[in-house]
């Protein structure tokens, strides 16, 4: 019941009801619980027909950037390890 996935706001009507796109599916949600102004293109979390809050885009991008760094660091570590393993085999002909 709690597994709400992010959705993009595509339309807002005069009753404070937004049309959102959730993985290609369009749904209507109430914006009555939203404290901040919501605009077209914003990402929101939906729960039982209501938007609960906006997703902080900058923050999400920052997290994704951190994951990219972790992947790169892992890659480098792995490369270094395989070189070291290779160095350890100097004795071979």
């Amino acid at each position: 019941m709690c597994l709400s996935i992010p959705s993009k706001v595509v339309e807002i009507d005069e009753h404070n009801v937004a049309t959102v796109d959730t993985m290609g599916i369009k749904r209507q949600v109430s914006l009555d619980l939203m404290r901040d102004e919501v605009g077209i293109g914003d990402y929101v979390l939906i729960h039982v027909g209501f938007a609960m809050n906006k997703i902080d885009e900058e923050d999400a991008l920052a997290s994704l950037a951190v994951y990219k760094e972790i992947l790169e660091a892992m890659d480098e570590e792995e490369r270094r390890r395989s070189i070291e393993a290779d160095d350890a085999c100097e004795g071979r002909a």
Partner: peptide, 11 residues
Amino acid sequence: MSLQLRDLYEG
């Protein structure tokens, strides 16, 4: 870079 809806799922 702007955030895509897809990033929020797949990322």
